[in-house]
């Protein structure tokens, strides 16, 4: 039981964090805060991947010394042949590196849009913007 709780605690916290981010995105009408929520949401997803990649007693997946290549030997578990060390799983790290970059790209475009929206409407509150558009719609028809 304790093993189960300790082994799954991270997931529960990460899920809570994800939902915090999602809640901010959905609930707030402020466009900048929405983007902050998006950032938190995405960062928590990154955490889900990274927590997955951890191996107990592991080290970062970087070899200290590069053994001579070209040998045919295959090693047992993920152990450095020279040092006998366990390494964590590198694949999720790579995926998340990519995802972080994608996240910041989205954020940059989103913020640029926010700046333009503020220039066009004088507000960054979703409700105010909807109201302004609604007034125009009523006036034109």
């Amino acid at each position: 039981m304790v093993d189960f709780i300790v082994g799954h605690f991270n997931y529960w916290v990460i899920i809570t964090l994800m939902m915090t981010g999602l809640y901010v995105i959905i609930s707030t009408g402020n466009l900048v805060k929405k983007l902050v929520g998006l950032g938190v949401f995405q960062t928590s997803v990154f955490q889900l991947y990274i927590t997955l990649s951890k191996v107990a007693g592991g080290r970062p997946p970087i070899f200290d010394k590069l053994p001579g290549y070209g040998t045919e030997t295959k090693y047992g578990a993920a152990v450095d042949p020279l040092l006998g060390v366990i390494y964590s799983n590198p694949l999720p790290h790579v995926l998340i590196l990519t995802a972080i970059v994608v996240g910041v790209s989205t954020l940059a475009v989103g913020l640029a849009l926010v700046v333009r929206i503020r220039e066009a409407y004088g507000s960054i509150e979703g409700d105010d913007i909807d109201e302004a558009e609604y007034k125009i719609e009523i006036a034109s028809s």
Binding site: G7, L52, Y69, A77, L91
Partner: peptide, 23 residues
């Protein structure tokens, strides 16, 4: 479990990279 070395994620492709990268 957190830190499980034998989970599918940590024992299949991810592990293969550790073997193959050197050569």
């Amino acid at each position: 479990n957190f830190g499980d070395a034998n989970s599918p994620a940590n024992s299949y492709v991810g592990l293969q990279y550790m073997y193959d990268t050197i050569t």
